[in-house]
């Protein structure tokens, strides 16, 4: 079997030594390869962070809100800027694999396609999480934020919201690979599908920031959205990978 992912020799040995590597092993091998490559180049992370920073600054001086207004609007701003920035990483998801014919190799190998999909989705999840960890303090500073509700809920909302954006985004990036002007196509098909998830994140964040009421409905909605679309993505990914 030709190893679908090639990076360090140790990993190649690990994958090819066992006759049938488990799905999870393939996922982790591919994931660690992506993370390692990103660690060396830092292309995606740097461009995402700078892009998000630009959005924050531009929003900040075009609105100039008071602390009270900030709490009302910042949920929307924060997620819109993360969504835009995430597009940068999502667009690069498959580019490297296309260039080096990795996808073709993957198609002929007996490795389960969902292992590849999961590794890409988890990789994007980590990138966007790093972005959020860097940008969230900046939002606090620029908008003079003080969280009035239970702050730990923000972590849960961020995790669920990021997965909602990233799981569909990774999938749609694979779809838009097969289109002309693929960088433009991804947001065009991703945004309409993400509207309810985005609405849930924004509302939940706003509720926690203002501490007005319980965000339970939105968090549950987001969790169900994540579950449904993870299942849909995993069901249909093989079809898309093999579409030639």
């Amino acid at each position: 079997m030709s190893a679908p992912v090639v990076l360090s020799e140790a990993e190649v040995k690990e994958v090819s030594a066992s006759p049938a590597p488990t799905s999870w092993k393939i996922t982790t091998a591919s994931l660690s390869k992506d993370l390692w490559l990103e660690w060396r180049s830092k292309d995606a992370i740097n461009s995402m962070i700078f892009f998000a920073l630009l959005v924050v600054v531009i929003f900040s001086f075009s609105f100039d809100p008071t602390a009270e207004e900030s709490r009302q609007i910042v949920g929307g701003l924060i997620w819109v800027s993360f969504l835009f920035a995430a597009i940068v990483a999502l667009n690069q998801t498959w580019a490297r694999e296309i260039r080096n014919q990795v996808l073709d190799a993957y198609r002929v190998s007996p490795a389960p396609p969902n292992a590849l999909f999961l590794s890409k989705a988890l990789g994007n999840f980590l990138f966007v999480t790093v972005l959020e960890a860097v940008m969230a303090p900046l939002f606090m500073i620029f908008y003079n934020l003080k969280v009035l509700g239970p702050a730990y809920l923000l972590l849960l909302i961020a995790a669920l919201g990021t997965w909602a954006l990233v799981v569909n985004g990774t999938f749609f990036a694979a779809i838009s690979l097969r289109t002309r002007s693929r960088e433009v196509m991804l947001p065009l098909i991703l945004f309409p599908i993400s509207i309810p998830a985005l609405l849930a994140m924004v509302e939940a964040t706003k509720i926690v920031l203002t501490g007005e009421s319980a965000a339970k409905f939105w968090i549950v909605l987001l969790a169900v959205y994540d579950l449904v679309f993870t299942v849909v993505c995993l069901t249909l990914f093989e079809t898309v990978l093999n579409a030639e």
Partner: peptide
């Protein structure tokens, strides 16, 4: 798949 979420969220 997204239609029920749209309806509920709005």
């Amino acid at each position: 798949a997204v239609v029920p979420f749209v309806y509920l969220s709005i």
